[in-house]
Amino acid sequence: MSLIELKNVSRTFGKGDERVVAVDNVSFAIDEGEVLCLVGESGCGKSTTGKIVAGLLEPTRGQVLFDGQDIAKMDKESFRRYRHSVQIIHQDPYASLNPTQTVRQMITRPLLRHHKARSNEEAEKRAVELLEIVDLTPAQDFMNKYPHQLSGGQRQRVSVARALTVEPRFIVADEAVSMVDVSIRVSLLNMLSRLQDEFNVTFLFITHDLALAKYFAWEGRISVMYLGRIVEDGPTRRVVMDPRHPYTQALLAAVPEADPELARRKRRIELRSADIPSLLDLPSGCTFNPRCPYFVAGVCDGEVPPLVAIPEGGRVACPIRKDVSIQLIEETPAAPAA
């Protein structure tokens, strides 16, 4: 049984002409101890999906199962257990901590409220332990600090420590390292990986950065979202090394590489249109069809293509290209791009 499962989850915002389908019929399951990366560009619905998983937003349609139980039908006690088991880490280290509270207040309050500590002394001790787990040492130096006295990386660590107060089994990390300086990013990712190894925490890692997804979820899976739908998923190695959906391929080809040689030799994929369709007026069929270089009239703009399993692992929502591999690196350096 999976720890978290989404069954045909949709979420709309607004009414009438302003109605937007942010998440459209998304299904996936995450096993205990696993890492799933949700990848996509802004507006693809990945953050909305994350909030639905974390129980902070209700789906308009579909079910969210936790330990096999539908969270919408849970009794108070089971919902409380679910609520404490799933925590979220936000993107912006400047917005995720209350500027008027000290680190001590932020961490001891949940401990005391949920009886994870019976006295102030015990809460204090536990807070120090948690800060050490997230590598904020010596912990005592941080207890009296306000958020503005911490660097971006340190704030994200406090966010993680705060989430750990309720001993979660599942963490939704929504672009959790995107706004942190490059040199610190890796140590944050490694710290999160350690939580996975040592405490068996399951992760939904949401990011727009494919390279980060690849690094963090190398042993896990990646789901690629585009305009509210999952277009491809599968084991990270397969998705990154042998992408099949034209959108995944375009993304991988477009990501700038921090390596001049790679940058010169990376294959270019020309899209038919540079514009992302508005969520208010989505194209019929596959929503990528107006931009897709492999567009076939009558097929791509008809029915919404379903996710179909492929033998190499995972699913692809493209009947045209699901069995075709492409090379992302040219054998010889490409001529200067025109």
Binding site: V182, V186, S187, L188, A211, K214, Y215, E257, K266
Partner: peptide
């Protein structure tokens, strides 16, 4: 800094 294309590569902070 991670790269997208190619095999897994160890990163150091």
């Amino acid at each position: 800094v991670p790269k997208v294309v190619g095999d897994f590569q160890e990163l150091f902070s």
